[in-house]
């Protein structure tokens, strides 16, 4: 096993152990922080698939995060009030049903966004994805049925078979479990033939075409998969807070997800775990000292970008980026 793989697995292990030890020590609040880190890591893993491996700098992933959240919130709201949603079906409070629907919702929106954005590249790609995300954001604000500007609360967490999701540790285990499964899936995909072509499309699309492969369907698939993973994270985040609002869709959120990826290491399997972990840690520790903690976050980000473009994983594995 390569050193980088060892570091990747250690990142997951540190996150999980943090939750477990905090639980054993009776620190429910720390368990919730670890849960938040796991969810942010998951959102970052989604973005990393297209940004890191495919070189598609999406500044619109908050749209998918928020759509996942709204799908979760809307289904839960209808289920709680026995309000019919479609065809007499009144939502659901079962995570195992909510997750695939959240992923489906994010994925369906990602198809047209990706198909149109991929006609551009570089800075235009960034701006087009941002513009689409802002459209979704303003739509949510002006949609009074589900809270509009204020967002909406739902009073109990959705359910998962065999686990009491209202206990912080139960919900932590669910989120950590999802993160581990998604990490394994991404590890598999990025080492597959698809991953080989995706990385090639990041480096040189002309070469991919000369090899007889159209880059567009490959990049679009990566973009949609990426959106689905971030959408799943959004559904979990809604359940964590039992609240969704347009904040989840705002461009600040897109920026934060990007920060998780860059801090941890662009194109590194568990970079987003390291990045999200560090982000939540700084938010908690420094946020307690000053409201302006993001100035310090900015300094850390600047240092990483200038001195260690491989992010935390790059520093720890001591290895330049490879394919």
């Amino acid at each position: 096993m390569s050193r980088e793989m060892l570091i990747n697995l250690s990142m997951l292990a540190v996150l999980i152990l943090t939750g477990v030890i905090a639980h054993l020590a009776g620190q429910g609040f720390v368990v919730t922080l670890a849960t938040k880190a796991a969810i942010f890591a998951l959102a970052g893993m989604g973005l990393n698939l297209c940004l890191g491996y495919g070189g598609l700098i999406s500044f619109g992933h908050a749209a998918f995060f928020g759509i996942g959240g709204y799908v979760c919130g809307i289904l839960a709201l209808h289920a709680a009030n026995a309000m019919p949603l479609v065809a007499g079906w009144s939502g659901s409070n079962q995570m195992l049903l909510i997750w695939p629907l959240a992923m489906l919702g994010a994925g369906l929106i990602a198809v047209p966004i990706g198909a149109l954005s991929l006609r551009t590249s570089g800075v235009y790609f960034i701006m087009v994805t941002l513009a689409f995300a802002q459209m979704v954001y303003y739509f949510a604000i002006s949609w009074p049925q589900y809270g509009g500007d204020d967002g909406m609360s739902f009073y109990t967490r959705n359910q998962f078979p065999g686990i009491n999701t209202l206990k912080p540790f139960g919900f932590f285990l669910i989120c950590a479990g999802v993160l581990v499964v998604v990490t394994a899936v991404i590890a598999l995909i990025t080492r597959s033939r698809f991953g080989l072509v995706l990385g090639a499309a990041r480096q040189n699309r002309i070469r991919v075409e000369a090899a007889g492969i159209r880059p567009f369907p490959v990049l679009l698939t990566a973009f949609v998969l990426s959106a689905m993973i971030t959408g799943l994270a959004g559904a979990l985040y809604a359940d964590l807070n039992r609240f969704v609002s347009p904040t989840m869709l705002s461009w600040h959120m897109s920026g934060e997800i990007m920060v998780f990826v860059i801090l941890g290491g662009v194109g590194r399997l568990c970079g987003p775990v390291a990045g999200a972990g560090l982000y939540v840690l700084m938010e908690h520790l420094l946020g307690g000292i000053t409201d302006y903690w993001q100035i310090l976050l900015g300094l850390v980000l600047l240092t990483v970008v200038m001195l260690a473009p491989g992010g935390l994983i790059g520093i720890l594995s001591g290895r330049a980026r490879h394919g």
Partner: peptide
Amino acid sequence: QLLPDYTVLQNVLLAVAGASGGAFHFLRN
């Protein structure tokens, strides 16, 4: 027009993959 981050082997693998079935294989390394 090569893939600078990839090894010689990975570069040629891409070309062989293009000639035999394309990109959409998600499992095998």
